[in-house]
């Protein structure tokens, strides 16, 4: 920048949300992703209201393949698979969204403070994050689930805690790079309060990185919940979770393959939806990046 410019504090660059939305809507795959994610949310929210009781056992129709009465068939206890998949969606949505939300709030707060102030807090937190990231995600989650005990709440807690270190690292990087921008140094020179600067400048400018991170973290948490439940460390039977449904399906792979197909398809389509949505958002937010 030239000397003449540095005297004036440049205006904070605003992300142009309308342009971004237009770019996003121009990508067919991004829209497919959005539709899949909305379908998943609809299944989780209204699905259980429209289907029968997921725990209702009917020994007349044990292991019956898909039919009109039971569109996705029934399991070994005669329970309706569609109802159980819809219920599993609710568990997945809870696990995915709540754990990610917790991880983002905690991680962003710690990360922004750490990156904005640096100093001893940053040094200590950085070391802790390094150590926590030395644990493979699933091993960390398995360990936490073992410590906390198997239940949906504890799975959510375990997933949230496991995701925090990565979020801290991203938020810290964003805070450090934004802090060095001229409009922030200008605000600091003007004597604005730090908290106000973080809320007014740093957070909004880092928002796109966090949105993209959320589209990565939510499906990771959904798969994490299903995995923990599949391993018997998460949601406990008879509650329905996609992971639990697949554990049950494992024994009847030969007689009733549809038991394995539908819950897995639900996980795959949901994850695919979030991945496409994330790709689309990334491209819309940063059109120059290669993909």
């Amino acid at each position: 920048m030239t000397a003449a410019v540095s005297a004036v504090v440049p205006a904070r660059p605003r992300p142009q949300w309308r342009r971004i939305a237009r770019r996003f809507l121009h990508r067919p795959m991004a829209i497919v992703g959005l539709v899949l994610v909305l379908a998943f949310i609809a299944l989780a929210v209204v699905g259980p209201m429209l289907t029968s009781d997921p725990d209702l056992q009917d020994f007349q129709v044990v292991l019956s393949p898909p039919s009109l009465a039971h569109p996705l068939g029934t399991d070994d206890l005669g329970r309706d698979v569609l109802a159980r998949v819809a219920n599993g969606a609710r568990v997945s949505l809870l696990a995915g969204v709540v754990s990610t939300a917790i991880a983002l709030v905690v991680g962003i707060t710690l990360g922004l403070i750490s990156g904005f102030y640096r100093g001893w807090f940053d040094a200590v937190l950085g070391r802790i994050v390094d150590v926590l990231l030395a644990f493979p995600f699933l091993i960390f989650a398995v360990g936490l689930a073992a410590i906390l005990g198997a239940s949906l709440t504890n799975v959510i807690a375990a997933l949230a805690i496991s995701q925090v270190p990565a979020v801290i690292r991203i938020a810290r990087g964003e805070a450090m790079s934004i802090r060095d921008q001229e409009y922030v140094s200008g605000a600091i020179a003007d004597g604005s309060r730090d908290g106000a600067i973080i809320l007014k400048y740093v957070l909004p400018n880092a928002a796109s990185a966090f949105i993209v991170q959320a589209t990565v973290a939510i499906p990771a948490a959904i798969i994490g919940e299903a995995t923990l439940s599949f391993l018997g460390l998460g949601v406990q039977p008879p509650n329905a979770s996609w992971g639990i449904l697949l554990t049950g399906a494992q024994q009847y792979l030969a007689q009733a393959p549809y038991l394995a197909v539908f819950p897995g398809l639900a996980i795959a389509l949901t994850t695919l939806g979030f991945n496409l949505l994330g790709d689309g958002l990334r491209d819309a937010l940063d059109p120059k990046g290669h993909r």
């Binding site: 499906p219 798969i223 299903a226 995995t227 399906a249 393959p257 394995a260 897995g264 795959a268 994850t271």
Partner: peptide, 22 residues
């Protein structure tokens, strides 16, 4: 690539067993 990224490995394992073994 997108499919590979989206399919959880334990489900893929079950489907692989279903196809190749069962």
């Amino acid at each position: 690539g997108l499919i590979g990224l989206s399919v959880p490995s334990f489900w893929l394992g079950l489907i692989a067993i279903l196809l190749f073994s069962v």
